[in-house]
Amino acid sequence: MNNSENKSLVYSIKDLNLWYGDTKALKNISIDIPEKEVIAIIGPSGCGKSTFIKTLNRMVELVPSVKTEGSIHYKKLDIKKAKVESLRTEVGMVFQKPNPFPKSIYDNIAYGPRIHGIKDKKTLDEVVERSLRGAALWEEVKDRLDENAFGLSGGQQQRVCIARALAVEPDVILMDEPTSALDPLSTAKIEDLIHELRKNYSIIIVTHNMQQAARISDKTAFFLNGEVIEFDATERMYSNPKDKRTDDYISGKFG
């Protein structure tokens, strides 16, 4: 954890507990997330990893009957006190299933800037190009920006979603199993992209795929039954896990 002390933190989470109704989904989570790194969150399904990243941009609050305790600080700001719309412009999110809007590629990318009051065509043109380039999609779609995004392949749709998130220039990108609905080739493209993006963004990615976590992340958190069992540099964790349960999971004994 030495190198993280040099870097400033994007998230500092203390004693986070979360319930869906009477079911406790997250238990006493306390971790610090450094900036400009790729953090992978792994664990068997139902371990709370998706729930966890949804607490980071408060998307989890959309679920009725959810209750949280503890604190999450985003760059020293308590996110409970932040305006949720502002938090989400700084913390973008990409979902499991590609979910572009049934609009043109251009309108998909311009969606964020537009709802935040940026209307002039010139700026929007620039943003669309820059975001699509950022998502490594510009060359593929530059001649058909006004076509419906639903006409693209699954992998391209997912990159539209990444470009859409980039358009408002966030600091953090949350990714909830972004490749689980994609074929291996598209998956490889997204992984390359994540590698590029880590230069400028902090990325927190949930994945059920341990090889993927090993390939792309700097640090990995292992979740089990709503608890963080281990959080360490990815290499160290894979080669020398401290906890028996991490070892069992990584070596495929369960999950």
Partner: peptide, 11 residues
């Protein structure tokens, strides 16, 4: 998912 996409953009 459509709602999620928009909410996550800060809409």
């Amino acid at each position: 998912e459509q709602y999620d996409a928009a909410y996550a953009m800060g809409a």
